[in-house]
Design a protein around this nucleic acid. Sequence first.
DNA 1: CTAAAGGGTAGAGTATGCTCTAGGGTCAAT
DNA 2: ATTGACCCTAGAGCATACTCTACCCTTTAG
Lengths: 123, 123
Amino acid sequence: MQIAELEQRTGVSRHTLRYYEKAGLLQEVERRGNNYRDYTDKAVERVIMVRQLKTLGFALREIRDVLDALRSNSIDCEQGARLMAEKRLEVNQRIAELKEVSIMLGREQMRLEASAAACRETP
Amino acid sequence: MQIAELEQRTGVSRHTLRYYEKAGLLQEVERRGNNYRDYTDKAVERVIMVRQLKTLGFALREIRDVLDALRSNSIDCEQGARLMAEKRLEVNQRIAELKEVSIMLGREQMRLEASAAACRETP
DNA sequence: CTAAAGGGTAGAGTATGCTCTAGGGTCAAT
DNA sequence: ATTGACCCTAGAGCATACTCTACCCTTTAG
C-alpha cells in the first residue's frame, strides 16, 4: 500500500510516518520503481504499536530499541532478553505508581464532591 | 528555605524550579525583602509530586490543572471533581495498557531467552 | 497533452520542557 | 571595603517529536 493508505489506516500523518522511518522505527520500507514507498500490512501493526508505546510514555529511541530486539536480528538474543526484562521492570514500576495516583485522584474526587455538596447546602 | 535547599532536597535544578514557578506549578512562592524566594516545606512535597506525575507521562499543563483543583480555589469544586474523575479514567486506561505491554515484554523476554539457549547449543 | 492527485526530499518552523549564560544585586565574613 | 557564596531576571540554546512548506517527479483521467 502507498503512504496515503497507511496514513488513513493508522491515523498517523504521512509527515510523521516518514519521520518515524528516518528515526529507524519502520525498518525495511520497500520502494517501488517510481521511488514511492510500498508498505505491507505488518507496517500497519508496527505503526500502531509505536503509537501505543509512545502514548504510554516511551521515547522513540526506546521504542526503536525494543522493536529492533523483537526482530531479533539487530542485537543478539541474550542482549534482547535483558532489554525486555529491564523494560518490563520499568513498566511494572510505572504501573505501581499509577495505581497510587489513581487512588489519590479517587480520594480527591470524593473530597471535592463533598465540598461541592456542602457549598450547595450552605450558599 | 532558599532555592539552593529546595534544589538539594528535591533533586530539581534551580533553573527548573524557576521554570516551574513561571509555568504556574508552584503557586504563592513568598519573597524575602531582598527579593530572594522563600520556600516552605510544602513546596518540597509539591515539587516531588510534580516530578512523579511528570515521569508518569503527564504534561506540565495537566499537572498544573490537577494541583490547582487540589488547592480548591482556582476552579470550583464540582469542576475539580470532574477533572479528578477524568484523569483517574485516563490513568486507569494507561494502567490497563501498561499491563498488556508488561505481558508482551515478558513473553518476548522468554522467547529471546529460549533463542539464546538454542544458539548456545547449536553454535 | 495536460491537469489533478499523489509521491518524494530537504529543510524550516513549532511546542514542550528543560538547561545554561550574561549581567547584576545581596549578604556574611574577613 | 572587598571577596566569595548566594540570589535575581531575561533570554539564548538544546533535545524531542512532530508539522508544514517549497519544490519537484509520477501516474492517471479526460
